[in-house]
Design a protein around this nucleic acid. Structure first.
Length: 562
RNA sequence: UGGGGCGUCGUCAAGUGGCUAAGACACAGGAUUUUGAUUCCUGCAUUCGGAGGUUCGAGUCCUCCCGCCCCAGCCA
């Protein structure tokens, strides 16, 4: 297989696969799987795994399965299954007819367990959970054998069958593998294979009251599906000997487990447990809150799936624990949106401007290009009149040196329109707040006219007051101010560290007339403000609500800070 | 003091003994610009956790040391 891009380098997993292809280890096959547990929503960390697994399959003309690892019914729900499938599809991947559930293998897994018992490799233990822990030993001291370890095969078979029949309460019996209680690898100290769980399963209902553990399920499921490369995260490295042990003892097809480092992103948390906590404690509106690093949150925020895939491509795959800069994700989002979104004007903190020398009842239709970088994007008309809104930030009564927006006596260009000059500042008598600017315009300076060559430093976005439509605009910032919110030592209480400025709702923003009819998911660049999308949840017909996806890069903000 | 991993630029990350250690993001300058956006240039590791050694030649091989991460669920 030739790489289509000779400049890009291969990661260590690709190297392994290419070596396996060369040696015909799996008869030239590449078959991966993405195996989420349906106990939460997918986040950007899962996207890395999805892109890796599905991407490898595509690259090497192989296949990738979607398999729900649903062996613990007490934490799993159908709601999550649906959401996960939606998210994987949205990201742009397709599992065709290869949708699997570990629970489909419960019969087969039970049979495998019986086989191990018959080989003398597994036994039913009746130590309590606490005793099992005690007998396991510690990191530095070996464990001790359970007194029930040497039961006869027949006795184990009978007991295991009775476990399945529901004769024992939770915690009274477990099935354990007989490996090595002195192993330095704790996973090999007679791991539990089956436990009693008198809980209905979202797919198998009440059929079972014993459920296999992850370790006894994952490898066998991979084996049954003919997976070649079983890619998982680093914390499972210690499980690989166990993964291999089961397949060897069972004498069934052996896929190869490969571990890579999970994604960490600064300013965000990527742990299902903590994300669930944010949802449950209502620090966010739900799993799809636009501030969440979940795929559903990013979708609602306006991140294009292409940008997320690009990000996953760029971060690479390796084995060292690392934390990727959030700025890289934002860069990918901007890069995509810059190419694809129409430029429109919106004013979120309006300041009234009256053009004194512009006729009272005149309205002009000005031509505005939709995307300067893309001539095919076309243009639209925008109304210009005597009374306008500009952004409050774009005026300063007493400007610093490098400020080249509007100020008393200064000139700026209004985008697509005329050059105006600030003649007078009107303030509120009581508060002293600037409430209106009286300006004049230069009729010769109209955009597109022969006389528009005159240069001014600043160009502002604006809206005609009579034509502007009101709209709610939501501005988002990092959910956490701390660069490393996952650090328990720094942030023992997660909720407390949530950035109180992570959401700002602007109720009284204004948008161009035609944006009134924008529909959920539509994406735009609000000139000079950032990229925004129409919120799917809160928007109603004719009254769109906009989410700020990401700001534009802002050099001025950096200068102003100094 | 057990077992398993990892240490290359601020952040990711190529590099599989042989030209001056890729690339991206970030950052800093400059040019163009009716978005302080975009685009375009330019700069940004004499050095690869440290110390020895092998070699004509070491980020890559060997030895020792240091640091960081994971494992003691009947979670995945």
């Amino acid at each position: 297989m030739q790489k289509d891009d000779s400049e890009s380098s291969t990661n260590f997993i690709q190297n392994i696969i290419e070596e396996d292809l060369k040696t015909q280890k799996f008869e030239g096959r590449v078959h991966t799987r993405f195996p989420p547990e349906p106990n939460g929503y997918l986040h950007i960390g899962h996207a890395k795994s999805i892109c890796l697994n599905f991407g490898l399959a595509t690259q090497y003309s192989g296949k990738c399965n979607l398999r729900f690892d649903d062996t613990n019914p007490s934490r799993e729900e159908e709601e999550y299954v649906k959401a996960i499938m939606e998210d994987v599809r949205w990201l742009g991947f397709d599992w065709d007819d290869r949708l699997y559930f570990s629970s489909e293998y419960f019969d087969q897994l039970y049979e495998y367990a019986v086989r191990l018992i018959q080989k003398g490799c597994a036994y039913v233990d009746e130590l309590s959970p606490e005793q099992i822990r005690e007998y396991r030993g510690t990191l530095t001291e070996p464990g001790r054998n359970s007194p029930y370890r040497d039961r006869l095969v027949e006795e184990n078979l009978d007991l295991f069958e009775r476990m399945r029949a529901g004769e024992f309460a939770e915690g009274e019996r477990v099935l354990r593998a007989k490996i090595d209680m002195a192993s330095g690898n704790l996973n090999l100290r007679d791991p539990v294979l089956y436990r009693v769980l008198k809980v209905a399963h979202h797919r198998t209902g009440d059929k079972w009251c014993i459920y296999p553990m992850y370790d006894f399920t994952h490898g066998q499921s991979d084996s049954l599906e003919g997976i070649t490369h079983s890619i998982c995260t680093l914390e499972f490295e210690d499980h690989r000997p166990l993964y291999d042990w089961f397949l060897k003892e069972l004498d069934i097809y052996r896929p190869q487990q490969i571990e890579f480092a999970r994604l960490n992103l600064n300013y965000t948390i990527l742990s299902k447990r903590k994300l669930l906590q944010l949802v449950q404690e209502k620090h966010v509106s739900g799993w799809d809150d636009p501030r969440m690093p979940t795929l559903s949150g990013m979708r609602r925020r306006g991140y294009p799936p292409e940008a997320i895939r690009d990000f996953c491509e760029r971060i690479g795959v390796a084995k060292s624990n690392s934390t990727v800069d959030f700025a890289l994700l934002e860069h990918c989002v901007r890069e995509n949106l810059n190419k694809t979104s129409s430029r429109v004007m919106a004013v979120i903190r309006p300041l009234k401007v009256v053009i004194e020398n512009y006729p009272e009842d005149q309205v002009e239709e000005l031509i505005a290009e939709n995307n300067p970088g893309d001539p095919d994007a076309g243009s639209r008309k925008i109304p210009f009149s005597r009374v306008l809104y500009i952004e409050q930030d774009d005026f300063m009564e007493d400007p610093p040196k490098k400020f080249f927006r509007l100020a008393p006596g200064r000139e700026v260009r209004l985008k697509h329109a005329y050059i105006i000059k600030c003649e007078q500042v009107i303030k509120d008598e009581n508060t002293g707040e600037v409430v209106e600017l009286r300006c004049t315009y230069d009729p010769e300076s109209k955009s597109g006219s022969s006389m528009d060559g005159r240069k001014v430093k600043g160009t502002l976005h604006w809206l005609s007051v009579a034509h502007a439509q009101p709209a709610e605009v939501r501005l988002y910032n990092h959910l956490f101010l701390n660069e490393n919110p996952a650090d328990e030592k720094e942030n023992p209480e997660l909720g407390v560290s949530v950035n109180s400025d992570s959401l700002e709702i602007i109720q009284d923003g204004f948008i161009e007339p035609f944006l009134k009819d924008a529909v959920g998911g539509d994406r735009f660049q609000f000139l000079r403000l950032g990229y925004f999308c129409v919120d799917n949840e809160s928007s109603t017909s004719g009254a769109p609500v906009f989410n700020r996806t990401v700001t534009l890069r802002d050099t001025w903000a950096k200068i102003a800070k100094k």
